[in-house]
Design a protein around this nucleic acid. Structure first.
Length: 421
RNA sequence: GGAGAGGUGGCCGAGUAGGUCGAAGGCAGCCGCCUGCUAAGCGGUUGUGGGGGUAAAACCUCACCCAGGGUUCGAAUCCCUGCCUCUCCGCCA
């Protein structure tokens, strides 16, 4: 969420930055609400002040057994007036707050301007895509041949976009989770295992609600939602807290299953593991001081890239342009892994700096040593990494002519085998 | 699921026959004083958000005693609803 006063005072800047994202927003109504709200607020405060003073006086008079009936009558009228104003005030507050909740974050000035993902800018590549002396198979073909991925039974048990991992496939999934958590924690990220059902308040805190309800699974008869990413529970760890300066930065890593409706992606990536309703992911989350957040974003991205380097998987990193940037993010790097069967790079991690956008929604603040007042922290997160897509990348990049798959060196201690056959 | 108890400031903990309580006291923190060092002691100070005000402060004011409603001239204190915590029973991984 953007700050009310900031929006009020920077109308033009907001309009410009939203236009870069492809949003056309009418702020005039908001300005009108704010003007009226402030006026009513002052009126209400003056009246409340009067009531406080006179009520005190009434108390004193009653103690002295002096008649205060005329004052009580007078205050009755004042209280009624306050009540009416407060109702209007609440109405206006709701309107402005709901409006602000639907505004996306302002892109950082280093984010390239563009209309959609075709204008994202590649900033680096690592590794060289392997030359095959045979035609590489798609991961779903490999997975079914080796009997480690069962798409059909996933559909039977639940429905489309659900998959069963079996044998060494299941073990590969588990190995990757452990490998990534071990690597991340060795770099100072604290491991978290959070609830995977969260309440609406937490979803609002990180920006999924109110705008993107249709992309979430909601539990019937409750206020709970299945998380679409560990970002939600982990960022909300410090909801409504005031942290001490010396507690920052905070680094967390968490493995969770993730659940997404994938509404609006009908027909996309129907085959294979790329786009599932349920998938595993190891996430990286940071809470940092504002002046550090862009340096922290670079390091977060580097930490995610390091996982691919250790797995010896070729990738490239792109910076998302304004038109492709996520709702809550001020700047995002996508890391895309090379998939030989598709002959293209596919997203495997998304690393973002949300600046104070989430912190303001979730009221995550900190206090500087020796300074008055509080400031919002900056929050960041990135996948480190999406497990299912990493499985895809390993199967496709490490496949051999005979249909078997070599286990990446760093995973062998976890897998206990060198080859999946 | 059944029965009970409770939710007050960074922490502990007063305050419930409504009135000057943003809230006693203690601890912790900060600033002084004192002190051979440490400890003890003495004095002062320390919440959050909003509106106004200022060059910036100072300052004025409103709100906040789990959350949301209600009663009242006036509520931390009374009433209702919700959430959470604890204890006992049941059930269960």
């Amino acid at each position: 969420m953007l700050d009310t006063r900031f929006v009020r005072d920077n109308i033009e800047l907001i309009k410009d930055s939203l236009a870069k994202r492809g949003y056309a927003v009418d702020l005039n109504e908001f300005i009108g609400w704010e003007r009226e709200r402030l006026q009513l607020l002052r009126e209400a405060e003056d009246l409340r002040n009067k009531r406080n003073v006179v009520s005190e006086e009434i108390g004193r008079l009653k103690k002295e057994k002096v008649d205060a009936e005329h004052l009580i009558k007078e205050m009755k009228v004042v209280s009624e007036r306050i009540k009416i104003i407060e109702e209007n005030l609440i109405d206006l507050e709701n309107k402005t707050a709901n409006f602000l909740l639907t505004l996306p974050n302002i892109p950082h000035n280093t984010v390239p301007v563009g209309k959609d993902d075709s204008e994202n800018v590649e900033i680096r590549r690592w590794g060289t895509p392997r030359e095959f002396d045979f035609t590489p198979l798609a991961h779903w073909e490999i997975g079914e041949m080796l009997d480690i991925i069962d798409f059909g039974r996933g559909g039977k048990i639940t429905g489309s976009r659900f998959t069963v991992m079996k044998g060494l496939g299941a073990k590969l999934e588990r190995a990757l989770i452990n490998f990534m958590l071990d690597l991340n924690t060795s770099k100072g990220y604290k491991e978290i295992f959070p609830p995977i059902l969260v309440n609406a308040d937490s979803m609002t805190g990180t920006g999924q609600l109110p705008k993107f309800e249709s992309e979430l699974f909601k539990i019937a008869d409750t206020d709970y939602y299945l998380i679409p990413t560990a970002e939600v529970p982990v960022t909300n760890l410090h909801k409504d807290e005031i942290l001490r300066e010396d507690q920052l930065p905070l680094y967390y890593t968490a493995y969770t299953p993730c659940f997404r409706r994938e509404a609006g992606s009908y027909g996309k990536d129907i085959r294979g593991l790329i786009r599932q309703h349920q998938f595993n992911k190891v996430e990286l989350v940071k809470f940092v001081k504002p002046e550090d957040s862009y340096e922290e974003l670079e390091r977060l991205t580097a930490d995610a890239e390091d996982i691919l380097q250790k797995l010896q998987l070729p990738y490239r990193t792109v910076v998302l342009c304004t038109g492709d940037l996520g709702f809550s993010s001020a700047k995002t790097y996508d890391i895309e892994v090379w998939l030989p069967a598709q002959q293209r790079y596919r997203e495997i991690s998304s690393c973002s700096n949300f600046e104070d956008f989430q912190a303001r929604r979730a009221k995550i603040r900190f206090k500087r040593e020796g300074k008055k007042g509080t400031e919002f922290v900056h929050t960041l997160n990135g996948s480190g990494l999406a497990i299912g897509r990493t499985v895809v990348a390993i199967l496709e990049n490490y496949q051999q002519r005979d249909g078997t798959v070599i286990v990446p060196e760093v995973l062998r201690p976890y897998m206990k085998v060198d080859v999946i056959r």
